[in-house]
């Protein structure tokens, strides 16, 4: 075996534990969702689609999926727009009190989430945002903003100042330079940030438990309500559907990136 091949084999071997930890949950959830047994235990018995039928006939699961999707899309858009603007402001802006502003903007990422549920309930109920979709979108966007900020700032740093200078020298207005030269460069960071923001909202349970009302359950709230009472394979069926959905999402992201790479 050549040195190169051996090195390659070593690299692959050492990466296996991480790959295993990443896919292991999915590996058990998918087969469990097709079990005949009404309980979530190993090994799954027989083959049945009853849990999918149960989920498909349940208004609660469908409504929760729909709410989670809408809230995650809207809150990640808000967080992405605000986070990207803020990243430029912090990276290039000069103003007094910048360090304080930075600390405030990043605090949602480090405050323990169990604290925020009650605080959010008290604050939002003063302005009638509890139990509304707007309230959930705002709260999730606030939690996601630091993640967008962090990913986008990373890419701002990689911008070669000379290309912006060149655009300006060729007569482009600052706004046009920004839109047509700067933004395309940072796009990977913005997309990564938007993805993390989407996931933050999609997975958020603690604050949502306080902000939801019966007709506005999100998926994690519905799942929590379900596993507190019954650990049945219906939860596995919902998860398998979500894994399938996220795989579709990933495939589409790749095509998107492929096209970007071609057009770049």
């Amino acid at each position: 075996m050549s040195t190169r091949a051996r090195r390659r084999a070593l690299q692959l071997t050492l990466a296996i534990p991480a790959a295993f930890l990443l896919v292991a949950p999915t590996l058990v959830v998918v087969p469990m969702s097709f079990t005949e047994s009404p309980i979530l235990s190993f090994p799954p018995k027989g083959f049945s689609t009853q849990w999918y039928e149960a989920v498909a006939s349940s208004d609660a699961w469908q409504m929760a999926t729909w709410h989670s999707l809408v809230i995650a899309v809207l809150s990640s858009m808000v967080a992405t727009v605000l986070g990207t603007l803020t990243a430029f402001g912090l990276a290039r802006g000069i103003f007094p009190g910048k360090s304080v502003a930075q600390a405030i903007l990043l605090s949602p990422a480090i405050v323990p989430i169990v604290l925020i549920g009650i605080g959010t309930f008290f604050a939002y109920s003063r302005v009638g945002l509890v139990g509304t979709m707007a309230g959930l979108v705002i709260a999730h966007a606030a939690l996601a903003l630091p993640l967008v900020l962090i990913t986008v700032t990373a890419t701002i740093e990689t911008i070669d100042p000379s290309i912006e200078l060149a655009a300006a020298n060729l007569g482009a207005s600052p706004v046009r330079t920004f839109l047509q030269v700067t933004l395309p460069v940072i796009r990977p960071g913005v997309i990564a940030g938007a993805l993390l923001a989407f996931v933050t909202s999609w997975d958020e349970l603690v604050v949502s438990l306080f902000l939801t009302q019966p007709l506005l359950h999100t998926l994690p709230v519905e799942m929590w309500s379900s596993v507190r009472e019954q650990l049945d394979p219906g939860v596995a069926a919902v998860s398998t559907l979500l894994v399938a959905l996220s795989t579709v999402g990933l495939v589409m992201t790749f095509f998107l990136r492929l096209r970007q790479q071609r057009s770049a």
């Binding site: 605000l82 402001g89 802006g93 605080g119 959010t120 604050a123 903003l145």
Partner: peptide
């Protein structure tokens, strides 16, 4: 300069965070 134009871009995100997150934290 003490302040430049880029600084304005911080404002929307900062105000949003203060209201949507800072206020709940103050309640706690």
């Amino acid at each position: 300069p003490r302040v430049n134009g880029w600084a304005l871009l911080v404002l929307p995100g900062l105000i949003f965070t203060l209201i949507a997150f800072g206020w709940p934290l103050a309640e706690v």
